[in-house]
Simulated scan of single mutants.
Amino acid sequence: MSKMANGQLKPVATLLLVLNFCMYVIILGIGGWAMNYGIDHGFIIGPRFNLPAHFSPIYFPVGNAATGFFVVFALIAGVVGVASALCGFNHIRHWNIDSLQAAVSAATISWSLTLLAMGFAWKQIELQLRNARLITMEAFLIILCFTQLVYIAAIHGASTRT
């Protein structure tokens, strides 16, 4: 890599990496709240209760029909995103071709899972009936789809310059 690529793209990649890490942590916090709320206030089934007619293991008492899928996939994307950011921090620290492959691979997997969660976010937006926390999580996932892609381009673009 040349000095020019190091000087121009490393600060951009670092900024995007920190931003993405913070947003993934926020998604994990809100998603953890939603999962906890869903478990605490979902269907209560005991030994003398019959299963409700429309029982779904992905039922959430907040939001709409897409909320369960959205929360589950957002949590998966959040965990993989944080792991990807940790791998990215290692690449930023070393900034060489040896650490690039792991960083790009992890970031690409994280981005693809974020795209999947964003698809459920769009479905949830279409169905409406959601609270402010879920709206915040939707917004962060939609923003992350763009910033994660730009981060991948920044670290991959630095390796192609000679």
Rank of each mutant, 00 (worst) to 15 (best):
A53I: 07
I44N: 09
N20E: 08
I27P: 02
F43N: 15
I152S: 01
S105K: 14
F21K: 12
K10W: 04
I135C: 06
A132T: 14
M23A: 02
H156E: 06
I58W: 01
I30L: 04
Y24H: 05
I125T: 03
V12D: 02
V25E: 01
G29H: 07
W33M: 10
F60Q: 10
A107L: 04
Q101S: 07
T136K: 12
M118D: 11
I27A: 09
I125A: 14
P47C: 07
G42T: 13
V18P: 05
L19A: 04
V80I: 15
V12E: 08
T108I: 02
N96G: 12
F120I: 08
I45G: 00
I30F: 00
H91S: 07
T162Q: 04
G46D: 15
A77Y: 00
I44V: 07
F55K: 11
A121R: 13
Q101C: 09
R161A: 05
I142R: 05
Q128H: 06
A154S: 06
A154I: 01
K10I: 04
Q148H: 06
N50Y: 02
L86R: 13
G42E: 11
P47V: 12
V104S: 00
L16C: 05
F49R: 13
G31C: 09
V62K: 09
F21Q: 10
Y24Q: 11
I92F: 12
N6S: 09
A74G: 03
S105A: 14
M137P: 02
V71C: 12
I142W: 06
L100D: 01
V62M: 00
G63H: 10
S84T: 13
I26S: 03
V71E: 07
A153D: 11
Q101K: 12
A34V: 14
P11A: 08
F146I: 07
T162L: 10
M4K: 10
G78E: 07
P52A: 11
A121W: 05
L127T: 10
A153Q: 01
V80T: 08
A34Q: 15
W122R: 13
F55T: 15
M35Y: 02
G81I: 10
S159N: 10
G32A: 04
G63T: 10
L134N: 11
N50K: 08
W95G: 14
T108H: 09
M137V: 05
Y59L: 05
A13T: 02
F21S: 14
G157V: 05
Q8F: 03
Y24S: 08
T14K: 10
L127V: 01
L17W: 07
R93Y: 09
H94R: 12
R133D: 03
A154K: 01
I142N: 01
K3M: 02
L19R: 00
N64R: 02
N6I: 10
I27T: 03
Y37Q: 12
A102G: 09
T67V: 00
C22I: 14
H94E: 09
H91V: 15
G119L: 08
A158N: 00
G78I: 11
N20V: 09
L75H: 05
G157F: 01
R48G: 02
L141C: 09
I58C: 00
N20Q: 07
A103R: 12
I39K: 10
S84H: 11
L86E: 15
I44W: 04
A103T: 14
M23I: 00
F43A: 15
L16Q: 02
I155K: 12
F146Q: 06
V79S: 05
I109M: 04
A132S: 07
